[in-house]
Amino acid sequence: MKRLDRRSFLKCAAAAGAGVLGAPCPEAQARTRPAPAPERGGVLVDTTVCIGCRGCEWACKEAHGLPTPPRQAYEDATPFERLRRPDAGALTVVNRTAGAGPGGLPAFVKAQCMHCDHPACVSACIVGALVKQDDGSVVWDTDRCIGCRYCMVACPFQVPAFEWKKALQPRIMKCDFCAPRRAEGKLPACVENCPVEALTYGPREELVRVARSRVKNHPERYAEAVYGEREVGGASWLYLSARDGAGIGLPALGPDPAPGVSESIQHGIFAYFVPPVALYSLLGLLMWDAKRPAGRDGEG
C-alpha cells in the first residue's frame, strides 16, 4: 500500500514540475485506470442454488470476531421478513425475494462487498485507506482512515458501514474477502461454510466463463446477464439468478466504472497543475496592470 502511494506521489510531483516548466507531458492524455490484476480471485454466487440457511452469515461473524449467536439460531427464518443490509455487526446478510427464484420459488440473495475492479471507495478515500489488492479484495486500513465516510457516499452498492456508536476508533466495516484467510491458503469463510455450494471461489475470469456456460446450458433456469460481470466496470463477485439483478433486489447499474467521471474532472481541473498555475499568472498580471497607473497608492 505504502509503496503505491509513494509511486503516485512521485508521479504527481514529477508531473507538477513538468507542468510548471512548460515541458511537454506526453503522458497527460494517456493516463488510464490501472487494469485489475488478471489473476485476481472472485466468487460466483448462484442464487438459484442458495437455500437461505444463513450459514455464511454465521461463518463470516466467526471469522471476523464479531459477536454472534450459536449456529442453530440462524435456522430462524424471521429475519427474512424484512430487507436487511450489511452493517457494522454483520458484513454479509442474506435476503429473500419472494417468487424471484427458479419455478416461482423465493430467491435468496447474499449481500456483501462486491470487490469492484474499479472501486469507487478506493478512488474516493481521502487518505487512500482503501486499496484494491491483486488478489481481488478491496481492503481497508485502520491506520489511515479518518472516518469521513466518503467511501459510503461513493459506493454504488451501498456496502461500507460505520461503527456509529463508537466514540474512539470507529471503523469502516465491510467484507474484506477474507484476505488474511486466503493469504494462508484457506477459502473465504462464507464459501467454506456453504452447505450447497451456492458460492464458488476461484479466479474471477474463470468464474465468468463458468457462469456463462451455466447460463448457456440451462437457459430455463437463469437470466442471461451475469450480475457483476459488467456493472460499474466489473466486480470480483458475480451473481447468477433466475431474474436479472433488479429482479432480485440488486441495484441497476451501468457499465461505466463509478469513479470515471469524477476522476477525469479532478484530473482535468488539475491537469498537472497547469490550470492553477495559469490562473495564478493571469491574476498576477491583472493585479500588476491595475496597480500600474501612477498616483494611486497601494494597500498597506
Binding site: D5, F9, I146
Partner: peptide, 22 residues
Amino acid sequence: IGRWYYIWHPIFMWNGNSALFE
C-alpha cells in the same frame, strides 16, 4: 469525521484521485 484526532492524516497520506482530498 469519526476520528477527529486524525484530521492531520490527509496532509501526509495523499490520494490524488479523491475530490475530498483536493
